[in-house]
Write a protein that binds this DNA or RNA. Structure first.
Lengths: 235, 235
DNA sequence: TGCGTTATCTTGACGGCGTCAAGTTCGATT
DNA sequence: AATCGAACTTGACGCCGTCAAGATAACGCA
């Protein structure tokens, strides 16, 4: 992790500037947030001239895209880990990934905002796209499992445009909206007035893991009980 | 509205630079989004030097704060209008404000992002605070009404720190998370892959107004059916 | 081992940005 | 009509992202 990203390998040639820039960028994001984020500042921390990163990332957008890709990967890993733990402990899988999602947002809010914050990213970037598809695929898979559907194994690697089986789209959007909405509101300070009250942020998180997950699961289970009027075969 | 905000009243003195700057700012936000937003560009459109706005807004943050205040007001107005229409047509009030919320986000995504996008705002600003409290108060009021609670009339003007009656906080957060989450994901392009599919954005909006609202209302009604174990008196 | 190729990084410059200090204009008050 | 103060301009500062041209050193190949 090389905390702070202030490593400087050799003299003229850095050695691993790409990684050093990413480390520095995340340090800056953690310290100053998206607003105070600057390419020159990152280069400074990496011990390198302002123009050096261009060769590795093209431009600022390229650096942000690389970070966003990491963010998606972290999200996917955290959700899969949450599922694994849920399976081990008997906890609900869907609730587990929703809590994992929030935890990632809280752990690295800067990186999370790069992923979802509408700073420009390289929209065509293949790696970014793949990472996003993977993360979304986990959410789709778990929602479908919670609905009792048969899930194709390759749901994880399919392109977004081929989620053509819209059977459970409403439930998927429902789950994702709650999870993403609560996470963004919390890290973006929309709930700050509520955090001022006794119990603070922990109380809100407990409410999310507790009552909100109960309501979410109940809503999804209600969908299970009343399946489609015109069932669509899938597979 | 003075579309574009390119009015120029007199010669040296503008006449109503404050409003002209806000108009120009919103035009820029609509055209280029938050990324391409610049104080100098707004000043240019208002036909004024880059340093002129300082007297009215202090700095860039001040301008954004003024816009955010407008955004909260618009949100409140839209939600109240939605309630009024719902009362007239017999539609559900809570679903109405949730749909009004989304509609505001879709109509003015730039302004919406200024309100919620974690660009720095003047956190201490009294007007911004009041506007935010009003908007949040409407959401609180309608959620409580949907839960069958008796709602104090002055819930709208109370400071956030005195929403101390936490009785229905989970339901409030639940409703707000879905509404805010779906709205932000849609305008920030997270659902873009889904918009590519036949039906496009309209299909997603219909799903939101339809199935998602059904699920949301069902979840809230389920809370009504099973009230608190230890009811807390309020009032 | 020596040499050339090429990726990597520096230097210097450009225009644009937000903001400040000082000067200019002009409406309003008396 | 004189004056005062608010509104606006001018010019400058440091910082930003990016580019072109030059310096350096790692690496492949003889």
């Amino acid at each position: 992790m090389t905390a702070g990203g202030v490593i400087k390998r050799g003299g003229y040639h850095h050695g691993d500037l790409r990684q050093a820039m990413i480390d520095a960028a995340e340090a800056v994001l953690a310290e100053k947030g998206v607003g105070g984020f600057t390419l020159r500042e990152c280069a400074r921390r990496a011990g390198v001239s302002p123009a050096a990163p261009a060769h590795h990332f093209g431009n600022l957008v390229g650096l942000l895209t690389a970070i966003a890709t990491l963010g998606f990967d972290q999200l996917s890993d955290a959700m899969e880990a949450a599922v694994a733990e849920a399976v081990a402990t008997g906890k609900d899988r869907l609730a587990a990934i929703c809590e994992g999602y929030l935890e990632v947002a809280l752990t690295r809010p800067g990186r999370f905002r790069v992923v979802f914050g509408r700073l420009g990213l390289k929209s065509g970037d293949a790696e970014l796209r793949a990472a996003g598809v993977r993360a979304f695929g986990i959410l789709v898979r778990e929602t479908k499992l919670a609905l009792g559907r048969q899930v194709d194994v390759d749901v994880l690697t399919r392109l977004p445009s081929s989620y053509g089986d819209d059977t459970d789209l409403a439930e998927i959007l429902f789950v994702w909206s709650i999870t993403h909405g609560f996470s963004t509101m919390l890290i973006d300070g929309q709930l700050a007035p509520l955090e001022m009250q006794p119990g603070g942020r922990e109380r809100l998180i407990a409410l999310y893991s507790g009552r909100l997950m109960e309501m979410l699961l109940a809503a999804v289970r209600a969908s299970t009980a009343m399946p489609l009027a015109n069932p669509v075969s899938h597979g």
